[in-house]
């Protein structure tokens, strides 16, 4: 059985939805953070798949961009989580509602 573009896209969609659900439903800031990474990598997967399918390197180039941005984001994000923990002694986002109107 040949693995077509649709397989890759389906897997990517599943991964992305898992990531979205993680962000929306989990309460631990670190888990939410990991879920975001999952969403980014789901997108990476589609990019690679299209690049393969259309024999175009543009997609691959973009993947490198995404990965470098994700690395930077990971550094900043973790720093924020640590700062948050120092102030609130919790990483449960339910308890962090400074924006409440």
């Amino acid at each position: 059985m040949e693995i077509t573009l649709n397989w890759y896209l389906s897997l990517s969609a599943v991964l992305f939805v898992i990531g979205v659900l993680g962000v929306l439903l989990r309460r631990n800031a670190i888990i939410i953070f990991l879920s975001i990474e999952l969403m980014l990598n789901a997108v990476n997967l589609t990019l690679v798949a299209f690049s393969q399918a259309f024999a175009d390197v543009d997609g691959l180039v973009l993947v490198f961009f995404v990965m470098s941005v994700a690395a930077a984001e990971a550094a900043v994000g973790l720093a924020i989580v640590i700062a948050l923990f120092r102030n609130k002694t919790t990483v449960n986002v339910n308890e962090i509602n400074l924006f409440r109107g």
């Binding site: 929306l24 986002v93 962090i96 400074l98 109107g101």
Partner: peptide, 17 residues
């Protein structure tokens, strides 16, 4: 209206999605 501003970021993210 103010009730919508829960302050929990996930609610905002849900609206976004």
């Amino acid at each position: 209206w103010r009730g919508m501003q829960t302050g929990i970021v996930q609610n905002y993210a849900l609206a976004l999605v």
